[in-house]
Amino acid sequence: MRLLLVAVFLWATVSADGLYSVEGTVVYPRGDSSLPANTRILLNYGKYVGFPREDGTFSVNGVAPGSYIVQVENVDYVFEPVRVDITASGKMRTRKIITMQPGAVHQLPYPLKLQARESTKYFRKREEWRVTDVLFSPMVLMIALPLGIMLILPKLTANDPELQKEMENMQLPKMDMPDMSDMMANFFGPKTTGTKKITGGKTGNAGQKKKN
C-alpha cells in the first residue's frame, strides 16, 4: 500500500476556515406542499443561493463573514427579508430590515424563521360594470328619488280623498313637465297638427309653447 488513503470522520456543522452556513426554516402557508421545489433563498440578491428541503429547512453554505440580506424567492408568496450579520468568528445576528434606518437594530431569533406574509398579488381588479354601481351612484339617486316621489305620491293619495285635498292645498310649486309622447312625436314623427292639450301653463314656460 504505497498510496495512502486516510479516512477522517467529521461531525462539525461549521466549516473550519472562515466560511459559515446560514440556517433557518421557511414556513409556508398550510396545505401548500409543492412550494419547496420552486423556492430559493437568496443572500445579497443571489451572491449565495440556498434551497429549502421538503420540510422547509435550509442552509446556505460557504458564506464569508459579512452582512447579508436574506430573502426568499417564491412566485406565489411574499416573504419579509431579514438581515444576517456574520462576524469573523462566526457569530450570527439576525435583525429586521428597515431600509430607512439601516443602523437600527431589531433583533430576531437565529436560526432564521422566514414566514410567508401573504400571497403575492400581481393584478389589479378590473372595474366591472354592475347594475348596483349605476343605481347607487349619487347622480342616479338624485334623479331617481324625486322622480319616485313624484310618481308614487299621487298614487298613494289617490285612494285617500282627504289627503288629496290637503295636498292640493299645500300649493306646491307646480312644474311644467313636458309630455313625453309629445316630445317623441316632435322628434321622430312628422309635424303633428292634431289637438294638443297644454298641461300646466301657469308659469308660462317658454319651452312648453307648441304650435297648435
Binding site: 495512502l4 488513503l5 486516510v6 479516512a7 477522517v8 470522520f9 467529521l10
Partner: peptide, 8 residues
C-alpha cells in the same frame, strides 16, 4: 459522513 485524502 467521511472524507479521505488521496495522495500521489
Amino acid at each position: 459522513s467521511w472524507k479521505g485524502v488521496i495522495t500521489k
